[in-house]
């Protein structure tokens, strides 16, 4: 396509992933539903994955891409445990709003 660079520069990926990471972090801080907070955390993890892949492509090496697989596996484990706890909370309180979960004073 004329007018566009041949390849997207690494900086563009890094900027995008920083923005995604920021959106995720803001989501965790502002949202009240445990599920939405969890989704925001997933967004943050995937933003990091993008960073890793971008760097790995720049270096022309595979190690950064391999790390992404580890991150995905860990994220899946975290989701499994997280959803189980959220379901458990919902069963006992009929809500996953983090403000309703405040027996302990933080």
């Amino acid at each position: 396509m004329p007018g566009l660079p041949e390849t997207v520069p690494t900086e563009a990926y890094l900027a995008l992933s920083a923005v995604l990471f920021g959106i995720g972090a803001i989501g965790v801080v502002l949202r009240k539903s445990a599920l939405t907070m969890f989704m925001s955390i997933e967004l943050m993890l995937n933003a990091v994955n993008l960073t890793l892949v971008a760097f790995a492509r720049q270096f022309g090496r595979l190690d950064g891409q391999v790390i992404v697989f580890f991150v995905m596996a860990v994220a899946a484990a975290e989701v499994a445990v997280g959803l189980a706890i959220i379901v458990d909370i919902f069963r006992s309180r009929r809500s996953v709003d983090i403000d309703d979960v405040s027996w302990l004073r933080g």
Partner: peptide, 23 residues
Amino acid sequence: EESAIKYLLLGAFASAFLLYGVA
């Protein structure tokens, strides 16, 4: 269970920062 959900959400949040640091 309340402390579990708090620990989970904040712990996963912190893990994302740790991972970004690694990247």
